[in-house]
Computed example of a mutant assay.
Amino acid sequence: MELKFSKRNQILIVRIQGEIDHHTCEHMRVAVEHNFEKIRGKHMIFEMSGVDFMDSSGIGAMIGRYKVAKCMGGKVVIANPNERVEQIFRMSAMDRIISCYPNLEQAIQHLEGGK
């Protein structure tokens, strides 16, 4: 798994390439929390077009990041999910707490209040 980080205002943008599973989710958790603290973030966007696979450990990692952002008064959203990721979100009911947007700009606009 490869992670790339960027920021926009108080939004941490995480671009993920590869698999989110029990082998990689701890690395993702540590790296995301480090970068979130570093930018003094409020919201997180996970850009997931490059995610090949996600198991239950990945779902747990996403829910954990949701809880971290929620404690800061923020939100976590998904941008550009491929069909497989969307299916996992629907089947696990994660789509009820973490919104999905078809592209990064729409996710940013949502978090910035529709600007």
Rank of each mutant, 00 (worst) to 15 (best):
Y101T: 06
G113Y: 04
R90I: 13
F36M: 12
F46G: 00
T24S: 15
F5L: 02
Y101Q: 07
I108V: 15
R8K: 15
V32G: 07
A69M: 04
K4G: 00
I98A: 02
M48D: 00
M48K: 01
Y101H: 14
Q109V: 04
E2N: 12
S56G: 01
I13Y: 07
H27V: 12
K4N: 09
G18P: 07
M91V: 15
R65G: 02
E112R: 07
A31M: 15
D52W: 00
N103A: 05
I13E: 10
D21L: 05
I63K: 01
E105W: 06
L12F: 08
F46L: 13
I63E: 04
G50D: 04
C71Q: 13
I13Q: 07
M72W: 04
H110F: 11
G74D: 14
N80K: 15
R84Y: 14
M44S: 13
K42S: 08
N35V: 09
G113C: 02
S56V: 00
D21H: 02
I16R: 01
C71G: 11
F46K: 00
I39N: 01
M91R: 09
K75W: 10
P102T: 15
S6G: 10
G41Q: 06
I11K: 03
H43A: 09
V76P: 01
H27L: 10
R90M: 12
L12V: 13
D21G: 03
V30D: 09
V68M: 05
N9P: 03
E47N: 11
D95G: 03
C25E: 12
I108E: 15
V68I: 12
S6V: 11
I13T: 08
F89V: 02
